[in-house]
């Protein structure tokens, strides 16, 4: 079984209000100089055949209209 991480994020140019809200909260916590926060999600899974993961991402894990994704193999 291959251990895999799929990283999914909002496409560049699409407003990400979650990222904006996080960014706006930072100065109140004393964090300075942090910009362009974007919030996505990560899916961890184990797959017998990693070749099918591209299709899985296109059909379910990501919505390719609004999200980009990357598939990362995780070393055991």
């Amino acid at each position: 079984m291959a251990r895999v991480r799929v990283l999914i994020r909002p496409k560049e140019g699409i407003l990400d209000p979650q990222g904006k809200a996080v960014e706006q909260a930072l100065p109140a916590l004393g964090f300075e100089g942090i910009e362009h926060v974007r919030v996505g999600r990560m899916v961890e899974l184990e797959a017998e055949d990693p070749a099918q993961l591209g299709e899985l991402c296109e059909k379910l894990l990501a919505n390719p209209l609004i999200e980009d994704y990357e598939i990362e193999q995780v070393d055991a």
């Binding site: 407003l15 979650q18 809200a21 209209l65």
Partner: peptide
């Protein structure tokens, strides 16, 4: 066509 995203004001 299209998609529905999180409200602008969250």
């Amino acid at each position: 066509p299209g998609a529905l995203l999180r409200n602008e004001e969250l």
